[in-house]
Amino acid sequence: MAKLKPLTELRKEHFHFSRFPTTYCPGCGIGNVLQAVTRAIDETGRPPESFTFAVGIGCYGNIGNYLDFDELRLSHGRVPAMATGLKLARPDLNVIAMMGDGDATAIGGNHLIHAARRNIDITAIILNNHTYGMTGGQYSPATRLGDYATTAPYGMLEPAFDICKLAEGAGATFVARTTTFRMVQTIDIVRRAIEHPGFALVEIDSQCPVIYGRMNRWGDAVSMLKKQNALTVTLEKAKTMTPEELKGKIVVGIFKQAVEPEFTGEYYKVINRVRRPQDAS
């Protein structure tokens, strides 16, 4: 890993700093994620204009206001589907599909698993803060069992999705989890995900101190991050632990990395085979 460039430089290159301060709550994990993703983009060495962010709805949905990248921002949950259309139409682009946990696994769950199944070359980044922050803290499919939400005032009764297992089962060929605490690892994993030729999913466990943190008495951002880190277990370590010991833990690492036929590439092979020269344009 190269030496990290100063934040001031990163802001100048990839952000509309004039639009700061952001609308995000103090201590929100979205800033950490954006820093990691933009640093990872830098590390790929690919030109910034070759990247497009597909974005849905959620607190993170406003990142386009601050990011100096091309952006496609639409309705809730459809990010994997619109990213699929964009990538197929424009295989030359690097498509980053940004999603929240509710966005990706509730309303967009069907699109997510099918994008994974197709193994289309999209980098899906799921910012998992375990809640619907923008609408004020309702429970999501990633809310931990027993935790509180405005719509789970007596505690969450539904088990949470294991997003990485979901992606792996659906056919994603690169699957990883990391946390906002582990910035260096996050940058590295996101870079690998971008460079991976196929559907890559990175779940970033993130803190929502003002809404989720308060409701569940996790304290401020710093104490949330400390608690997040205390719960974190590396994949290597996890292999030595029993399922009982792993309950409630955040296992981080690269769960899957395999090269398999990529959908866009396969489709363009068909085009090259059946294309009629007189129609070429």
Partner: peptide, 16 residues
Amino acid sequence: EDELGSLSAVVGASAG
């Protein structure tokens, strides 16, 4: 995978 996804993909391609 469904009509929601169909029109989403169409939008993605159009934006491209």
